[in-house]
Amino acid sequence: MSTADDYEYAPLRIPPGTSRTAAATMLSLQVDVGGWELARLQLHADGTRKAILRRRARLSYLPMPVT
């Protein structure tokens, strides 16, 4: 079992009006480039999506997500 210290987290805000397909593409690019995985995704009433990405702490040499 892994602990919270094994991961680093990064918030990512996706603006309202962004299509579901475009949001999925943005997230998949972060996965491919930075080694991130989706930990949580929230859809707010105004249409804003808030994603929490995580990756193993040992991969910290990879870039942070573009916000």
Results as ranks from 00 to 15, higher is better:
Tyr61Met: 14
Ser28Gln: 13
Thr48His: 01
Ala23Gln: 03
Gln30Phe: 03
Asp32Arg: 10
Pro63His: 06
Ala45Ser: 14
Leu38Glu: 04
Leu53Ser: 09
Ala39Lys: 14
Leu53Ile: 10
Ser2Phe: 13
Leu43Gln: 07
Arg40Tyr: 05
Ser60His: 12
Arg20Ser: 12
Leu59Phe: 10
His44Arg: 15
Gly34His: 02
Gly17Gln: 08
Arg20Tyr: 04
Ser19Phe: 08
Leu29Gly: 01
Arg20Glu: 11
Val31Phe: 00
Met64Trp: 04
Thr67Leu: 04
Ala24Phe: 11
Gln42Met: 11
Leu41Val: 15
Arg13Cys: 01
Ala4His: 10
Ile52Lys: 08
Gln42Ile: 14
Leu29Val: 01
Pro65His: 10
Ser60Asp: 11
Pro65Gly: 13
Met26Glu: 02
Leu41Asp: 10
Gly34Ser: 08
Tyr9Pro: 03
Tyr9Met: 05
Gly17His: 10
Leu29Thr: 03
Asp32Tyr: 11
Ile14Thr: 05
Gly34Pro: 06
Lys50Ile: 11
Val33Tyr: 09
Gly34Met: 04
Leu59Gly: 08
Ala10Ser: 14
Pro16Asp: 08
Thr18Ala: 03
Ile52Pro: 00
Leu29Cys: 01
Trp36Asn: 00
Asp32Ile: 06
Lys50Thr: 15
Pro16Ser: 09
Ser19Glu: 03
Arg56Ile: 05
Arg56Met: 04
Leu62Pro: 07
Leu53Ala: 08
Leu53Asp: 05
Ile52Asp: 01
Tyr9Glu: 03
Glu8Gln: 10
Ser60Arg: 11
Leu43Ala: 10
Tyr9His: 12
Ala39Glu: 13
Tyr61Asn: 15
Glu37Gly: 15
Leu12Asn: 00
Ala45Cys: 13
Ser28Glu: 08
Ser2Asn: 11
Leu27Trp: 02
Glu8Cys: 07
Arg49Met: 05
Ala57Asp: 04
Ala22Tyr: 02
Ala39Cys: 12
Arg55Ile: 06
Gly47Val: 02
Ser2Arg: 11
Leu62Thr: 14
Gly47Glu: 05
Leu41Thr: 09
Ala57Cys: 09
Pro11Glu: 04
Arg56Pro: 03
Tyr7Phe: 15
Pro63Glu: 04
Gln42Asp: 14
Gly17Ser: 14
Thr25Cys: 01
Asp46Ala: 09
Glu37Tyr: 15
Thr25Ser: 04
Arg58Phe: 04
